[in-house]
Computed example of a mutant assay.
Amino acid sequence: MLSSLAAPEIKSTAAAGLRTAVTILDKWGATGEQGEAILRVSHSTYARAKRKDGLQSINLDRDQLTRVSFVLNMHAALRVVFDNPENLYGFMRMPNHNAFFYGRSPLEVMGSGDFVAVYETFRRIDALRSSQW
């Protein structure tokens, strides 16, 4: 879909996605360092994305766009699973005792910044959505 957009539209769409992902990470209680690692962006880019008027256009590579997409889709899955804001935003900070997490929270796992950790967390969160249908 992005490939059909002109360069300025891609940069604008990427900025909007990044701003939304940063807002979600903030609501999940991610530290700045965790958010930067999860999205694989610099401290200055993350700080600009947190400001309402700080990021109107940005170049993100395929890996960064994929990470933004994972955060957005995890949030969408959690919105299907949970009705109340405490669980919707708190789930990612809660210790999880399933085999992949071994007592760590999803944010702790993804906070390493490792792509596989982010992907596998996304996969498991997205699977929660399936069980609701």
Rank of each mutant, 00 (worst) to 15 (best):
H75P: 03
V41I: 15
H43D: 14
G54N: 15
R79N: 13
A37R: 08
R48S: 09
A30S: 15
V81H: 00
L72V: 10
G29N: 11
R67W: 05
D83Y: 01
Q56K: 13
L55Q: 08
N87V: 01
H43F: 09
A49N: 04
R67C: 04
G32H: 10
R62T: 04
A77K: 12
R40A: 15
D61C: 02
R62V: 06
N59D: 15
R40F: 05
P85S: 02
T45D: 07
L88H: 00
W28N: 09
R51N: 15
L39K: 02
A49K: 01
R67E: 11
A37T: 03
G54L: 11
T31D: 05
T45H: 04
W28V: 05
G54Y: 13
A49E: 03
G35Q: 07
A30K: 14
S44T: 15
Q34I: 06
L60D: 10
V71S: 04
V80H: 07
G32W: 05
Q64H: 00
F82A: 03
R79L: 10
K52M: 07
L78P: 09
G29I: 03
V81C: 04
D61M: 02
I58Y: 05
T31V: 06
F70N: 07
T66F: 03
D63S: 08
F82W: 09
V71E: 00
G54I: 12
R79F: 00
S42F: 11
H43I: 02
P85F: 00
Q56D: 14
T45R: 11
V41T: 12
F82D: 04
R51L: 14
R62I: 01
Q34G: 12
V68H: 09
K27S: 11
I38W: 03
R62S: 05
H75Q: 12
V68T: 13
L55T: 06
G29C: 03
Y46I: 02
N59T: 12
P85A: 03
T66R: 14
G35T: 06
K52E: 12
S44G: 10
K27W: 06
G32S: 12
S69V: 09
T45L: 13
R67Q: 10
T31H: 06
K27L: 14
A30W: 11
E36W: 01
G32A: 09
I38L: 11
R67G: 05
V41W: 04
R40H: 14
R51I: 10
N59C: 10
T66E: 13
V41L: 08
D26T: 15
A47I: 10
N84K: 02
D61S: 06
Q56L: 08
N73H: 07
T45V: 11
S44F: 13
S57Q: 13
L88F: 00
Q64G: 02
T66D: 11
I58W: 01
P85M: 00
Q34T: 11
G29H: 05
S69T: 15
V71T: 06
V68G: 07
D83M: 01
